[in-house]
Design a binder for these strands. Structure first.
Length: 466
RNA sequence: GCUCCCAUCGUCUAGAGGCCUAGGACACAGCCCUCUCAAGGCUGGUACGAGGGUUCGAAUCCCUCUGGGAGCGCCA
């Protein structure tokens, strides 16, 4: 049987890393088993669902590369099917119309809470035969009152629920629209989902869903309820630490594979390995190995992993992702070859693409001004002779290569009887405007002879002025 | 309140009875390397929530407690 998994977010809030992780687990599981990954948008709550949130889900999945093999399906377009099953349940006696008013329900709830009981519907309308005038009924599922439901969970093992703990849940509102738990069951069955991988906040819903599925004549899929992600402070994920739109991570300069790597390691591991390529994740990941306990989101480790992935990337891959960040800084680049060379020179010293872009602007545009401290320390009268000499040597170079540049810089230091730093640092400030850049030979090579000499000339003049 | 879930360094985790004087990673501190920043290397501190069992032996199995989380909506 082909493995079929699904990711079924509701577009009521922003897609954040918690959702992305369950999506990733489902996607990985499908890929690993040569299965099918389905995307379904659960938008039955017309009040709270937004176009914007739907778009974030679609864009986020696209950016991360978690492509759906089927879908996106929208629940709002499946209303006819839900109505059909509703009628079927009503006809077969698996469901009934309930005429209890909201006020009555609230009163019942208050009484039960008062008596320190679990609030639940008491089944008043189970045997009602006549409609109640003036009340638009809801439809309730007639849950079995005896016996147990065993949820066979890939992560938690068998979890046992007494049917006597469950009540008759509402599956259609008084306006006739179906509710979440019901739609999920119909959809998962219709879409022939074999593995339901979702947050463990749904574990308690599962026995009801299994009961409805059985009423539908279906057989339960495999379940895997994955632990939730907590904020860095160990509390529930909030906007302060990670509960932001996934797209935020793109803006901040994270590589999609780095975010995925971070997320896959939350609650899952493979020996001591920390860095995983996408291929390794697919090959090594198994839902059975996922931990049961919730885990806290650690931005520092995500940052470190991003750097690891940047270091391991090909310059071309980096260039592709770096480009929009440079553009955002007002530096549109069309020289792909130079962009790749820049990325290569920076990939060992940037934790994010945003940072890389900021530190790479000087390769394309002359700095408006020198960093004050850097200039004061390095563009001094003492540095002037070094800059003049190295400028002369660089100008005379036959080939403009890192090796040749390295030689020229070294020779300058030797000739002047000073350390390499006394020559390299002033050059660095001269060309980049700051005291930080890739190794000076590489920097100059990528920058090109023309811009190098031009900026050195300016620096020499600057040294003369102070 | 009731039901269900969970519990190893600050954080992510390894550990499926002896290999554990508990390993790795992030972060932190120090040192080395060094043209800057990084990267890399080395060193260091910090953890099995508590109490009972079972066993020759328990982080690992069982029970109780404690602590945390989820669900109990005409939300998803």
């Amino acid at each position: 049987m082909t493995v079929r998994t699904r990711f079924a977010p509701s577009p009521t809030g922003m897609l954040h890393i918690g959702g992305v992780r369950t999506a990733l687990f489902s996607w990985l599981y499908a890929k690993r088993h040569g299965g099918v990954f389905v995307l379904r948008i659960e938008d039955t709550d017309r009040e709270r669902s937004t176009e914007e949130a739907t778009q974030v889900i679609l864009d986020g999945m696209e950016w991360l590369g978690l492509h759906a093999d089927e879908g996106p399906f929208y629940q709002t377009r499946r209303m006819d099917r839900y109505r059909e099953v509703l009628e079927q349940f009503l006809a077969s006696g698996h469901a009934y119309r309930c005429y209890c008013t909201k006020e009555e329900l609230e009163a019942m709830r208050a009484r039960q809470l008062e008596a320190k009981q679990k609030p639940r519907y008491d089944g008043t309308c189970r045997h009602r035969t006549e409609p109640r005038p003036g009340v638009d009924p809801v439809i309730r599922f007639k849950n079995p009152q005896e016996g147990v439901v065993i949820v066979e969970d890939e992560i938690h093992g068998n979890v046992r629920f007494e049917n006597s703990e469950l009540d008759d849940l509402i599956i259609a509102r008084s306006d006739g629209t179906p509710t979440y738990n019901f739609c999920v069951v119909v959809d998962d069955w219709d879409m022939r989902i074999t593995h339901v991988i979702r947050g463990d906040d749904h574990l308690n819903n599962t026995p009801r869903q299994i009961n409805m599925l059985k009423a539908l004549g279906g057989t339960p899929p495999k379940y895997a309820h994955v632990p939730m992600i907590l904020g860095a402070d160990g509390a529930k994920l909030s906007k302060r630490h990670g509960a932001v739109s996934v797209l935020q991570y793109r803006e901040e300069g994270y590589l999609p594979e780095a975010l995925l790597n971070y997320l896959v390691r939350l609650g899952w591991s493979h020996g001591d390995q920390e860095v995983f390529s996408l291929e390794e994740m697919i090959r090594l990941f198994d839902i059975k190995d996922v931990n049961k306990a919730a885990s806290a989101f650690n931005p520092d480790k995500l940052l470190w992993l991003n750097q690891q992935h940047i270091m391991r990337s090909t310059p071309e891959h980096l260039a592709k992702h770096l480009k929009p960040h440079l553009a955002a800084l007002g530096v549109p680049v069309d020289d792909e070859e130079k962009l790749a060379a820049v990325a290569k020179s920076q990939q060992e010293r940037a934790k994010t693409l945003k940072e890389m872009a900021q530190n790479s602007v000087f390769f394309f545009r002359e700095p408006a001004a020198y960093d004050e401290k850097a200039a004061k320390k390095n563009l001094t009268a003492e540095a002037k002779p070094a800059l003049e000499l190295v400028m002369e040597k660089l100008g005379a170079l036959e080939t403009w290569s890192a090796a040749a540049i390295h030689q020229a810089v070294n020779d300058t230091a030797t000739q002047l009887g000073v350390g390499l730093g006394k020559v390299a640092q002033p050059i660095r400030v001269a060309v980049s405007g700051t005291s930080v850049s890739p190794p000076i030979d590489v920097t100059l090579e990528v920058l090109g002879r023309e811009m190098t000499l031009q900026r050195l000339k300016k620096a020499v003049e600057y040294c003369g002025r102070v």
